[in-house]
């Protein structure tokens, strides 16, 4: 059965065993001898299987098949393989015992690992940049927002040839308001507008929002270019955000008499 269904095909310097049917012999030969087949890919060194069970014959005889089956049967009965062929087949059945890979770190590696234990894992991104990214982000697309920020800062670097992160910190510090006003509801006819001091993050939030608002008035269809332009103009003191900041401060100054209402 096995013998009838196998044919040796000579092609490209190597013999290939192919399962064929009677009618499609010619077709199989045509596909086996590929156009532009690479001669370098021919197998020159015989494998261990070929050494143990040589099959360089025109056809497999019934006796070869019987020998193979007898070898497998005898192997199943025996617990300890003796001949080379038995050892080979048993190793195929249980390869884990052959390949034992144990890693033992060197003294230097152990010392390095000990030194790294006290090392704190740094943040992925700067806190201010992370804040800006989150303000820009829409529909949870953070990678897109990050790319906009990175590209914008790259243009800022190209234009100013300064560290864009330090420049952004400087700009935001100058643009950020110190104080804002909130309405204190009394429950009576009159409500009071009360000045409130801002925390650092709150102040930065105002500054970053004003920068993003200002960038909408720029010409470029690319948000990163618009954002870069606005950061540069804010750095140069031309941003509309400075007017908003002074208005906010003016309102706080006007209502400074209500500061006592804050608890």
């Amino acid at each position: 059965m096995i013998r009838n269904s196998l044919k040796v095909v000579q092609g490209a310097g190597s013999k290939i065993w192919l399962p064929v049917q009677q009618k499609s012999v010619a077709l199989c030969v045509a596909t086996a001898v590929r156009f532009n087949s690479n001669k370098a890919s021919t197998i020159t060194k015989s494998s261990l299987t070929a050494q143990v069970y040589p099959i360089n014959k025109e056809s497999i005889s019934e006796k070869d098949v019987d020998d193979w089956l007898a070898a497998v049967k005898s192997l199943r009965q025996k617990h300890h393989p003796e001949t080379e062929a038995e050892v080979y087949v048993s190793q195929l059945a249980d390869p884990h015992n052959v390949v034992v890979d144990k890693f033992e770190p060197s003294q230097q590696q152990i010392e390095e690992a000990e030194a790294l234990k006290s090392f704190k894992i740094p943040g992925k991104q700067d806190a201010l940049l992370s804040h800006l990214t989150n303000l820009i982000m829409r529909s949870g697309k953070k990678a897109r927002a990050e790319k906009i920020v990175h590209n914008a800062l790259y243009i800022v670097y190209l234009k100013t040839r300064q560290d864009p992160v330090a420049l952004l910190y400087d700009t935001v510090n100058r643009l950020a308001p110190v104080v804002t006003t909130r309405v204190k509801r009394t429950g009576h006819a009159k409500n009071y507008t009360v000045p409130v001091a801002l925390r650092k993050r709150q102040a930065e939030n105002f500054a970053l929002k004003w920068i993003i608002e200002g960038s909408e008035k720029k010409r470029s269809p690319d948000f990163s270019v618009r954002l870069a332009e606005e950061i540069i103009s804010a750095f140069e003191g031309k941003s509309a955000g400075y007017d908003k900041r002074s208005q906010m401060h003016k309102a706080a100054m006007t209502n400074r008499s209500y500061v006592f209402l804050i608890k």
Binding site: N151, Y154, R219, P221, D222, V225
Partner: peptide
């Protein structure tokens, strides 16, 4: 009212067209 700004180009073209190399070290 014309919108202001350095360029009307997108990022890829803007960095190439704005001649930033003149400001380089």
């Amino acid at each position: 009212a014309k919108a202001g700004g350095m360029t009307h180009l997108g990022f890829d073209d803007a960095v190439r067209a704005l001649k930033f190399e003149k400001l380089a070290v």
